[in-house]
């Protein structure tokens, strides 16, 4: 069965892209082995303490906590993009593996298909 790597590159809330990407990942995990790689402003999806009460939209970031329960164990982010944003892993909602350029290239190579969001 093909494994699928989901790549998330959009920040949350400014558009629905990030939320619809997560929906696809959760669906994918019901069918096959799925992993996720956060790059660019996609890393901002993982920042803890997101509160959308006043914005009036769904705080879908809470669903990231369920990824492990859905069997999504490969969860990684771009180390250069993390550093570029002045973030560290403690700022995130969930535990994420940081990958350098070579690590990300290997991560992509190790999956059969890639779906970008």
């Amino acid at each position: 069965m093909s494994s699928i790597l989901f790549v998330f590159s959009r920040p949350p809330h400014g558009s629905i892209n990030a939320q619809e990407g997560l929906d696809a990942l959760l669906m994918g995990s019901a069918f096959t082995t799925c992993s996720v790689l956060f790059v660019g402003d996609g890393l901002m999806q993982l920042v803890s303490g997101q509160s959308t009460d006043d914005l009036g939209t769904k705080n879908f970031s809470l669903s990231f906590g369920a990824l492990k329960d859905y069997g999504v164990t490969g969860i990684a982010c771009s180390e250069p993009d993390l550093v570029a944003r002045g973030l560290n892993k403690d700022d995130f909602l969930i535990e994420v593996e940081t990958l350098n350029a070579a690590g990300m290239q290997a991560f992509i190579r190790n999956h059969d298909k890639v779906l970008n969001f």
Partner: peptide, 21 residues
Amino acid sequence: MIVHTINKVSALGLCDNLVAE
């Protein structure tokens, strides 16, 4: 070999360190 498609200038910044030789 992987084919990377890029449809806007800003998207190069997302993948420039992911593209293998």
